[in-house]
């Protein structure tokens, strides 16, 4: 048994301290240690994007990170999107519902997090920019058309007002 490593990480505004096996992937850490099961595992080799989360403001694949690599970082997962106090969904979540941007919904948390980063950087993306930002996320159900519509709607709803950024827990 290799030595456990100490990790301090902030997820959705809450700071956790844990000792972990160095080989534990970040997505397994989030799901099984922190019980944040909204981030999904689709391929574990960095192709499908289902496990996308935000790390220090950037969308990353949590299956391609070790939990130990997240030490000292600030993470956001799908659980952090909804406003827990008001119960209100994030505009991106609502847009995906409004435009039927999901079917089975397994890939959806990954798409939402990639979209979060996109709209924080670029509040009014073109369709090409939407595609470029989301081409690392695979969906087997929708054929993507409704996803593009959802992102457009989310952008429209949030333009003018500042979208809750990817930095910090917003």
């Amino acid at each position: 048994m290799t030595a456990l490593q100490h990790v301090t990480v902030t997820v959705n505004g809450i700071t956790y301290e844990r000792s972990v096996d160095p080989r534990l992937s970040l997505v397994d850490f989030l799901r099984h240690e922190l019980h944040l099961t909204g981030t999904h595992v689709g391929c574990e080799h960095g192709v499908c994007g289902a496990c996308t989360i935000i790390k220090d403001g950037m969308a990353v694949r949590s299956c391609l990170l070790l939990a130990v690599q997240s030490d000292g970082t600030n993470l956001q997962t799908v659980e952090g999107l909804r406003n827990a106090e008001t119960g209100e969904l994030h505009p991106i979540q609502q847009a995906f519902i409004d435009e039927h941007g999901l079917q089975c919904g397994f890939c959806t948390p990954g798409f939402l997090m990639s979209t979060l980063e996109l709209l924080a950087d670029n509040p009014s993306p073109t369709d090409q920019e939407i595609k470029d930002a989301l081409d690392g996320n695979l969906c087997r159900c929708t054929g993507y058309q409704s996803i593009i519509k959802s992102v457009r709607l989310a952008a429209a709803k949030t333009s003018g007002g500042k979208l809750a950024g990817t930095h910090g827990s917003a």
Partner: peptide, 21 residues
């Protein structure tokens, strides 16, 4: 009608209980 799906709030919030949860 183009009715919004009752499945979706659970899915977009990551709360739906897929088996690995």
């Amino acid at each position: 009608k183009e009715v919004k799906r009752i499945e979706d709030p659970g899915l977009v919030t990551g709360r739906t209980e897929f088996i690995d949860n």
